[in-house]
Deep mutational scan, measured.
Amino acid sequence: MGFKLLSKLLVYLTASIMAIASPLAFSVDSSGEYPTVSEIPVGEVRLYQIADGVWSHIATQSFDGAVYPSNGLIVRDGDELLLIDTAWGAKNTAALLAEIEKQIGLPVTRAVSTHFHDDRVGGVDVLRAAGVATYASPSTRRLAEVEGNEIPTHSLEGLSSSGDAVRFGPVELFYPGAAHSTDNLIVYVPSASVLYGGCAIYELSRTSAGNVADADLAEWPTSIERIQQHYPEAQFVIPGHGLPGGLDLLKHTTNVVKAHTNRSVVE
């Protein structure tokens, strides 16, 4: 069995187990497998329904001669939608809004960016022009300005110390501490036991640490421990890039980060 097929099978099995364990909360999309990078042309966006009122959005972007996937989250909030992270750029984010209108038909009224990198804030200006209120932590807003990236308009308070959590509509926002970046936030959907790890969490097929220019490698494993301790009931975990899975993604990420750190020390 090929690795790609095995990865998709694991996603399907995880979703099936969740649907059985929580039949009222989960209505997993039966329309197909989780979209992969090879299936999404740059400039297009796919939506994948995880649970009743919960979707991931998947886009792709060219970077350094390669094409990478990027995940975000959409959560229903009454007759409105909360968006977590842009679709990595203005063109993708405009396509995301169009796809949401086509498939869901509810307005996106608020959006949260989970850290300051372009795959999370690139497209904020498109959201703002569409009347979406954009939010991020003060740290993310400051770092985005320093980096020359787009800056969300509103500040999220109460997320300055490791372990801080605040309720934001249908989700809980959690600051686990520094990891992929010093400002990275985690998003949890309690009604569906869905954990969105953003770039602080890796997919299972990833074996290298990737972009760690703004990471705190020493603190990252401790931050992941905080996530595990705060959300032990999480059933569906979405990484910032690639295929979702279960809580095993947290341990896998820790292993990859520690291996990278150990290699760096040896070198």
Rank of each mutant, 00 (worst) to 15 (best):
I50Q: 05
F63P: 06
P190C: 03
I84S: 03
L6G: 11
I201E: 02
S137Q: 07
L159M: 06
N92E: 04
G148D: 06
S205F: 09
H252Q: 05
T207H: 14
T134E: 00
W88M: 03
V257K: 01
I58S: 07
L143D: 00
L156C: 03
S27A: 15
L5D: 13
Q61R: 15
S193T: 09
A90W: 08
K258W: 09
I201V: 14
Y196N: 03
A130K: 14
N92P: 03
Q103C: 10
A200M: 09
K4R: 06
V257H: 03
L243P: 10
L47Q: 03
L249T: 02
Y196P: 02
A66S: 13
T114G: 01
E157G: 12
V146G: 13
V187P: 02
V67S: 15
L127M: 03
I100M: 06
G78P: 04
A51Y: 08
L82A: 04
E101S: 13
R128K: 13
S191A: 12
P190V: 06
V212E: 07
E39G: 14
R263M: 14
G158I: 03
L247P: 14
G123L: 04
T153K: 10
H57C: 01
S160W: 10
H117P: 01
L73C: 02
V171F: 02
V11D: 11
G169A: 06
R142A: 13
L47H: 06
E172T: 04
Q235I: 09
T114M: 07
L204A: 13
F174M: 13
S155V: 14
V171W: 03
H117W: 00
N211G: 10
L97D: 00
S161N: 12
E267N: 10
G210A: 07
P35E: 07
V112P: 04
G240E: 05
A59P: 04
Q61M: 14
N184S: 04
D119C: 02
N262C: 06
A136Y: 01
G148W: 04
G123S: 04
L96P: 04
S62T: 08
Q103V: 13
A215F: 03
K102H: 15
T134F: 01
Y135C: 05
E233F: 11
P69A: 15
R263I: 14
V266W: 13
A178S: 10
E233N: 13
I20V: 14
V146I: 14
D248F: 08
L81S: 03
N184W: 00
D119N: 05
A66D: 15
Y12D: 13
L47C: 02
T93S: 04
L204M: 13
V54R: 02
G246H: 08
E150F: 03
D216L: 06
T14W: 03
L195G: 00
T207W: 08
A59L: 05
L156N: 01
F3E: 08
L204G: 12
F116K: 01
H117S: 00
A19K: 15
G32E: 10
H180L: 05
V194E: 03
S137G: 04
A90H: 10
V28M: 15
I104T: 05
L127N: 00
A98C: 09
A259G: 13
P176N: 01
G242V: 05
S161M: 14
I100T: 07
A213M: 13
A90I: 07
L13S: 14
D85M: 00
V256N: 03
D248C: 06
G123R: 04
S30N: 14
Q228I: 11
I201L: 11
Y68V: 15
S205L: 09
A111R: 03
A234Y: 04
I151S: 07
N71F: 01
Q103Y: 13
M18C: 13
A15D: 09
E33I: 10
R110S: 11
V171H: 02
V124C: 04
